[in-house]
Amino acid sequence: MAASDSRLRVRKDSGVTIVEFVDRNILDEANIQMIGDEITSLIESESSPKLLISFANVDHLSSAALGTLITINNKLRQKGQLRLANIDPQIYEVFVITRLNNIFKIMPTTEDAIKSFG
């Protein structure tokens, strides 16, 4: 999917689909819905997707964004793998507070995440 109004940058490396966010703040529900739909399309276009979501440019995210990540994780569990990477320490704290660091595989860097796929 390469819509001109996409809020994502998508590329492939070593068989891994790498998704980065255009926006520094993932707060707006309408944008989050669009991001979720776009990532779902990426997942559905592959039989066994390896998806890496990078938060390299992200300063803020909301609970709605966390909800979208959970939905993506739930969808991927049946047929693929998900990694998160490059999470700012303040945002990582949000994952810890919500205990979502227990359900996501979070890697320090893109390189670490790519290597971690089975």
Binding site: S62, S63, L66, G67, T68, I70, T71, N73, N74, V94, I97, T98, R99, L100, N102, I103
Partner: peptide, 21 residues
């Protein structure tokens, strides 16, 4: 409580607990 094991994979319900935190 969204941090209970049985609620961890529920996509909604974290806003209030984040405010509290």
């Amino acid at each position: 409580d969204p941090t209970l094991d049985e609620n961890l994979e529920v996509p909604t319900g974290r806003g209030l607990m984040l405010i509290r935190a």
